[in-house]
Design a binder for these strands. Structure first.
Length: 584
DNA sequence: TCTGATCGCGCG
DNA sequence: AAAGCGCGCGATCAGA
């Protein structure tokens, strides 16, 4: 059952659809529900386990959650539309072509903002913000229904073409056993589930003990200072630095002042980054590095942050699903995806509860093995420690070397040790290395590449396009540099994007299993955090075993959904802890 | 005095 | 020890 929701002048319009997006013959008339009745009506209809179709999950689901209504599944028209508009799997469809027309003015691929005409005023008042992406389905019930139907039509066609259209597609996504339509359908379901999970996690929040956080701050920085003042420890370090660098008014937060002071004292650095400062042995370096570390803690996660972001023992950041082109999530406010190790002790389970912190070990290299079907590297990936396996096969047991080489292949390293190790890696694993090399060449040539489930990289930037008609040698050199940069991006995209595909499936599978546990009445386990390849579940002590099994089963399910039955392991490491700093 | 760009650093 | 990818954010800086 498919139920479409649309904002209507006098409430919410609600219509039952067929799978194809036509009005359900048995019940073709829309129904209008007042704002006050919506949560109750939705709750009642949820018993029939519909898929809720809406413009954006963020517009509907948070308020339903506040009203105590949790839903099983949805279809997010904006997120799915964005995938379908760009995917190589649907590039031949009318849907993608229409989207391409719309995006010709897309600011992402256009000159600086200042040169563009101002955006048109919103059509429907302030009810919705402008969509983040270029797909702008209209917002009336009929427009949304038509949009859904068009998306389903495009999805159907994804399975109806030869796998490779010459000159348009990188080799990355073309396994012979692949069923593109199924994969894309899976991606759309996982993306929509992700949107629900993001809203639910924001609603729930990360359990955060303010007094533990304050204790960490006091230990590192001293007592809480007056607003705008430096904490005592930073003040003391500033005084020490001013003396050691003979600069009585130095502000160590100012890179320019700092650079001048360092140079005056014979410390010849080109930047003021920590790694470069560490090269020097001047007595001022140690307190300077200490200052930088503590100043960062104070500015990014100090008392001001605590006041702004932690309420009633929960940190409730906003997650932005689809915020990264590769399919990773982004976040807004509070730096949710950058919680520093220093303060993870403040993330603490409630009494009678545990935190289960699980992360996929060496996810990206394993994804590369599966994508490239490199059987030699798959042998190494049977090891719990993939890098150790690779080291044994091709690097004389030197794990550090193996790791640097493999990450270099995924990121496109050209210089340094990592770059030098590439030939050695390529000899041992021609398939895996060849796979990322092909993705790089596709990117350099302006082609798009595609993740396992069908998320495609953006088309070349305006900068890249302009660089193509260079004439002088200097321009050509610039063009090569721009092309190589795009090559590194597409090289990484196929791996990072497919890892994001895997993680989305892992998360969606885990959510389903945790819901099952909850409906059994055995466990009130909650997903509270997600970070690219890591999840955190907050659950009662008695539910720990069930949750751990759910996490591991979900990982296995995700592997099979993406790649079928292949001899590559995707192990997860699971830690049961009271506080986040005890994990890993 | 405001705004956008840049630097530097946190996370994967 | 750092380089190759992807992000968000705060302080400073440059320019209007």
């Amino acid at each position: 059952m498919y139920l479409l929701l649309a904002a209507h002048a006098d409430g919410t319009a609600l219509q039952e659809l067929t799978a194809d997006g036509l009005p359900a013959p048995s019940n073709p008339q829309p129904r209008v529900v007042s704002a006050g009745d919506l949560a109750g009506v939705v709750r009642g209809l949820e018993k029939r386990r519909p898929r809720w179709i809406w413009h954006r999950t963020q517009d509907w689901y948070p308020s339903l959650l506040r009203a105590g209504v949790e839903l099983e599944r949805c279809y997010d028209l904006t997120l799915c539309g964005s995938i379908l508009a760009h995917s190589e799997f649907t590039a031949h469809t009318g849907y993608a072509r229409a989207a391409e027309k719309l995006t010709q003015d897309d600011e992402l691929h256009q000159p600086p903002r200042a040169l563009q005409p101002p955006p048109p005023p919103p059509e429907q008042g302030a009810l919705f913000d402008a969509p983040a992406r270029d797909q702008r389905p209209g917002q009336s019930l009929e427009e949304l229904r038509a949009e859904y139907a068009a998306q389903q039509d495009a999805l159907r066609q994804a399975g109806a073409v030869p796998a490779t259209a010459p000159g348009t597609t990188g080799g990355s996504a073309d396994a012979p056993d692949a069923n593109r339509r199924q994969r894309l359908q899976l991606l759309l379901a996982a993306e929509s589930a992700g949107a629900m999970i993001a809203a639910e996690m924001q609603h729930t929040g990360v359990p955060w003990r303010e007094e533990l956080h304050e204790q960490i701050l006091a230990d590192c920085l001293g007592p809480r200072p007056a607003p705008g003042q430096r904490p005592a420890k930073l003040e003391a370090l500033t005084a020490e630095l001013r003396q050691l660098l003979r600069s009585p008014a130095l502000n160590p937060d100012s890179p320019q002042e700092l650079m001048r002071a360092l140079h005056r004292n014979g410390i010849e650095v080109k930047t003021t980054r920590q790694w470069e400062l560490k090269e020097s042995s001047h007595p001022a370096i140690e307190p300077l590095l200490a200052y930088k570390k503590l100043a960062r803690l104070h500015a990014a996660n100090g008392w001001v942050w605590l006041d702004a972001w932690v309420k009633n023992g929960r940190f409730q950041p906003e997650y932005v699903v689809g915020g990264v082109v590769s399919g990773r999530w982004a976040s807004r406010g509070g730096g949710a995806l950058q919680i520093p190790r220093q303060i993870r002790g403040a993330v603490h389970a409630d009494p009678g509860h545990k935190l289960i912190v699980a992360d996929a070990s060496q996810l990206e290299p394993r994804v590369l093995v599966a994508l490239a079907q490199d059987s030699k590297m798959a042998e190494a990936a049977r090891d719990k420690d993939l890098y150790a396996g690779i080291a044994a096969q091709g690097f004389g047991g030197d794990r550090a070397k193996a790791k640097v080489a493999l990450l270099g292949a995924i990121y496109g390293a050209t210089t340094g040790e990592s770059g030098r190790l590439m030939p050695q890696l390529a000899r041992t694993y021609p398939r895996a290395v060849g796979f990322v090399e092909q993705a790089a060449r596709d990117g350099e040539a302006g082609r798009t590449v595609t993740s396992r489930l069908g998320r495609s990289s953006p088309p070349p930037s305006d900068r890249w396009l302009r660089s193509q008609h260079s004439t002088t040698a200097e321009e050509q050199r610039r063009a090569d540099s721009i092309a190589r940069s795009r090559g590194r991006f597409t090289r990484n995209f196929v791996v990072q994007g497919s890892a994001a595909d895997w993680a989305a499936c892992w998360l969606a599978e885990l959510r389903r299993r945790l819901r099952d546990l909850r409906s059994d009445g055995t466990a009130a386990a909650e997903l509270v955090f997600f970070l690219h390849d890591e999840v955190m579940v907050h659950c009662p002590d008695g539910a720990v075993e069930d949750c751990m099994r759910a996490i591991e089963d979900s990982a296995a399910a995700a592997k099979e959904l993406l790649f079928g039955r292949i001899p590559v392991e995707f192990p997860v490491s699971v830690a049961v802890v009271d506080s986040y700093d005890k994990a890993k």
